[in-house]
Nucleic acid binder design. Structure first.
Lengths: 236, 236
DNA sequence: TCGACGCTGCTTACATACAAGACCTGCCAC
DNA sequence: GTGGCAGGTCTTGTATGTAAGCAGCGTCGA
């Protein structure tokens, strides 16, 4: 197998699986057999297994020894944990925002918001821009590298959010909130920026809570029980 | 169904290696050959390799394809990132401390402080108690589960701290600071508790910075270069 | 009807074999 | 002496073989 890419097979498998789990293309409870995945992806079990272990550490997959691996349920506790973590980090970063902002970064954030406006009806595209925006906010204070930790911890939060947003009709409101945040930061009104950001993050979380009360079956406190084994065509 | 209770070989290898890296028993730059480790530990390459991959994701080990795996250098940037993260999380948790504390947990923290006093000259024992104390502070606000994320992110910070504390003569000062924090929390003075905690965490970080200026060779911005291969007896 | 038991097929965990690339070392030409 | 090349030996990456355990289901007995 000579793929000219310097990205290892494991990296590709890991990123592919992770994306499919986060986008709910692989819904919670889906069986992830090493053999099936390996056959589907045209690789051996080794890189698949290593990827499942990593996803297991991230909490996106549960591996039951000698039984099977499954996409983890959306755990309400983990969602709340991630919410707490991201709020703590993003708000704390605002305390370290310098007096004069990096103009290039500000321009990038403004351009991002324009694209958000255009993509407000395209869930996946919007999510991608939303991620870049919040990462950019962290970079304003020089704490951009902390984003990766937040990303690794908020898988359950992202899935819960997608569960809710599948039923909404547009992310225009979020774009407005993003604008308020950025405007306050640029105006140097950090206190106002903090309030706007907190309100924004809380609004997102409230949407999730509403979804949970409407459709509790989508959520579950992960009690360690093995999901019913289903024959799901994991790959097309 | 048991999942966590069954400690697999991989789990044991991972935890063993992680501990040795964090305690500097395996100092930065040490070569970690999969074959050597497997032979030393009496297992095959598989669990060793999987552990190295996990440690690589944590930033404690760098894996250079076809070249070798090495204990990562203590990266000043990662130390600062972890400091920012833990400070953000621990301080934010104080905002959610309930009016009436869990008396059992408070008793546990007080007992922990007693032990800290006794162990103030025993570096490793003190570290263990320190970890439990800060974890306990998070649990006071119901955010105990966020600690695991902090732990996973602060490997470089812990190593840097150990580098510094190897040269000090006792952790009595830290015990006093811990007392101040807990006393303020119990007294219901959250604002004062926040100040004390921030001062404590900053003091720890300042110690690290002092160490870095005294011994810059122990730190290094990890530029991706392969360390000089050394024949180190990794295991006794 | 219902419960116990064993077989069968699946799973992951671990071990091992093979592949491919990087580095070191020593030889050789000059 | 010195530069360059080749080969040997290390490394990790991947593939595959082996072991052990759980679950589901059919069978059998009461």
């Amino acid at each position: 197998m000579r793929e000219a890419s310097n990205r290892s097979n494991r990296r590709v498998v890991y990123e592919t699986l992770r994306r499919k789990v986060l986008t709910l293309e692989l819904p919670p409870g889906t069986s992830l057999s090493e053999n099936e995945l390996a056959a589907s992806l045209g690789v051996s079990r080794t890189p698949v297994r290593e990827s499942l272990i990593l996803l297991g550490e991230e909490g996106l997959v549960r591996v039951f020894p000698k039984v099977g691996s499954f996409v983890s349920r959306v755990d309400a506790e983990r969602v709340a944990d991630a919410q707490f973590l991201r709020e703590a980090v993003e708000l704390a970063a605002f305390d370290d925002i310098p007096g004069t902002l990096d103009p290039e970064l500000v321009a990038e954030l403004r351009a991002n918001l324009e694209q958000q406006r255009e993509a407000r009806l395209d869930l996946e595209k919007f999510f991608e821009l939303d991620e870049a925006f919040h990462h950019g906010l962290l970079r304003l204070s020089g704490h951009g590298r902390a984003w990766s930790t937040v990303v690794a911890a908020k898988g359950h939060l992202d899935r819960a959010r997608r569960l809710g947003l599948h039923e909404t009709n547009g992310m225009g409101r979020f774009v407005d909130e993003h604008h308020s945040i950025l405007d306050a930061v640029v105006a140097g009104d950090i206190s106002s920026a903090r309030d706007s950001l907190r309100a924004h993050l809380r609004a997102v979380f409230d949407d999730i809570e509403k979804t949970r009360q409407r459709s509790p079956e989508l959520f579950a406190t992960d009690d360690g029980s093995v999901p019913v084994r289903r024959s799901i065509a994991v790959w097309e």
